Amino acid sequence: MLALRRSLIALVAIVGVVAGAVTAWVVTEASDGGAHATRGEAAIGGPFELVNTEGETVTDQDFRGRYMLLFFGFTSCPDVCPSALMDMSRALDRLADAAPAKLERVVPVFVTVDPARDDVVTMAAYVENFHPRLVGLTGTPAQLRAAADAFRVYHEKVMPETYFGGDAPERHEKGDYMMAHSAYMLLIGPSGGYVANFKHEAGPAEIAAGLREHVDAS
């Protein structure tokens, strides 16, 4: 059942990234009057205003000049989120060993899609379980919805029996809920533009290799 759920979430992730990328290709008129496609940047990313674990308001502008390694999830997530954040942490440790100058240019960021439960205190306690540089961001429902939309991240409140395929653990009380969400990790460049994405199945070695490839240490 766990493998099935991960496959479904990964499929959502792939669809979201592909949809965003496809809409970003620009069709222009060629010099001979015909239409041709030119290479463009994926339409992923944009302005946001959220709150960090110190209770301070931060925006996309606070990350300019650095790369964001970005993941959306929620602290009550039983498997996908902690495994993704652990992979992120281990990838950053690998990057520190192989290319420390590049590590300094990367900011790992975890944004909740569950603002009702993931307040500042909850997020602060949660991110301490992962990389010491991990930035946790929360906010109002409207703020988080705008951020998720900007980065083409799917998220939806579902009941435990839906999330777990009818086999909800007893610890989930009646009326409780889970968050179905995209499970890809995004690399956002110093100017705020999309650079790359890593699917959920990508392990620390693949993520670290991608960072070495895409991050400019200058």
Rank of each mutant, 00 (worst) to 15 (best):
M1Y: 11
L2F: 14
A3S: 12
A3V: 13
A3Q: 15
A3T: 09
L4M: 12
L4C: 10
R5Q: 13
R6D: 11
L8H: 04
I9P: 00
I9S: 04
L11C: 09
V12C: 07
A13D: 00
A13V: 03
V15Y: 11
V15K: 11
G16V: 05
V17S: 03
V18K: 10
A21R: 01
V22E: 05
T23V: 14
T23M: 08
W25Y: 13
V26M: 11
V27F: 08
V27C: 09
T28Y: 11
G33N: 05
G34S: 14
H36F: 11
T38F: 15
R39L: 14
G40S: 14
E41A: 13
A42Q: 00
A42I: 00
A43C: 14
I44Y: 02
I44C: 00
F48V: 05
T53E: 02
E54H: 12
E56Y: 14
T57H: 10
T57N: 10
T59N: 08
D60M: 06
G65A: 11
R66K: 14
Y67H: 15
L70I: 07
F71D: 03
F72H: 01
F72R: 02
T75I: 08
S76P: 13
C77K: 01
C77S: 04
P78H: 14
V80K: 03
P82N: 06
A84L: 06
L85I: 12
L85V: 12
L85C: 09
L85A: 05
L85R: 03
L85T: 06
D87H: 11
D87G: 09
M88I: 07
M88D: 02
M88Y: 04
S89H: 07
A91S: 15
A91Q: 03
L92K: 01
L92W: 01
D93G: 10
D93T: 15
A96M: 10
D97E: 15
A101H: 11
K102Y: 07
K102D: 00
L103Y: 02
R105Q: 11
V109K: 03
F110W: 01
V111H: 01
T112E: 07
V113M: 00
V113E: 01
